[in-house]
Design a protein around this nucleic acid. Structure first.
Lengths: 110, 110
DNA sequence: TAAGCATATGATAAAGTTGTCATATAGATT
DNA sequence: AATCTATATGACAACTTTATCATATGCTTA
């Protein structure tokens, strides 16, 4: 009984983890932060995204432990928490290289 | 110019990759297949999921290179492609252990 | 302290995803 | 060949996620 619940919780956490990454906005932010720490405004400039779109999504990334913020007077500078994200992204490259055509043509995930 | 396009494509592939994992049905299937290869019917029995729900989602996992199928007369037995999935799942445990409370309380991803 | 920039946040319409139903296909068994 | 069992698939309603808008907060500098 308890075991079933544990399995459920585990899957649920996994789901949350992966959802954090399965969003265009958040992935583009991560991509940019791989190069250098940035403020919300600078991310907006570089991506063309609406300011509130970036704020909402970076808040999610921060809350879930993927990025860290340092307050600098009026500014908040966001940086990747390299411990997790970099290895995660890098690990997937191999799979993506091998299966990219298949990923692109899947009818279920789009 | 080309570079921007490459970055876009890369993010798009990443997105597809993560989407494959950010679904309760597919995660539960992966969880079960970690133990042993199974048919659609057996997955239905173990999870209580509708047959077409399992078929649709396992097709996605197969198409994208996460599971392999072997035809056995009337049956198709699905097995995890251990090359990618096992290390992926395992890599995330650390992050999930550390940040589980935060993942659970994020308002953006649910 | 007023005005200006930087960022945050709640509500919601629009877009995207999911499970289910109905039905199809295809090998096995009678 | 008819039936049965296993799996696959298209369509679509229900549900979920997203970006945007309007507005709020809060630091900074005149």
């Amino acid at each position: 009984m308890l075991k079933l619940r544990q399995i459920y919780q585990m899957n649920n956490l996994h789901k949350l983890f992966f959802k954090a990454f399965s969003n265009q906005t958040r992935l583009e932010i991560i991509q940019l932060l791989k190069k250098e720490p940035l403020t919300v405004t600078k991310i907006c400039d570089k991506t063309g995204f609406e300011q509130s779109r970036v704020s909402h999504n970076i808040k999610c990334l921060e809350h879930c432990g993927f990025v860290k913020a340092t307050q600098n007077g009026n500014f908040r500078e966001y940086a990747l928490d390299k411990e997790t994200i970099i290895p995660v992204i890098d690990l997937f490259e191999k799979h993506i290289q091998k299966y990219k055509e298949r990923l692109k043509t899947c009818k279920i995930i789009t």
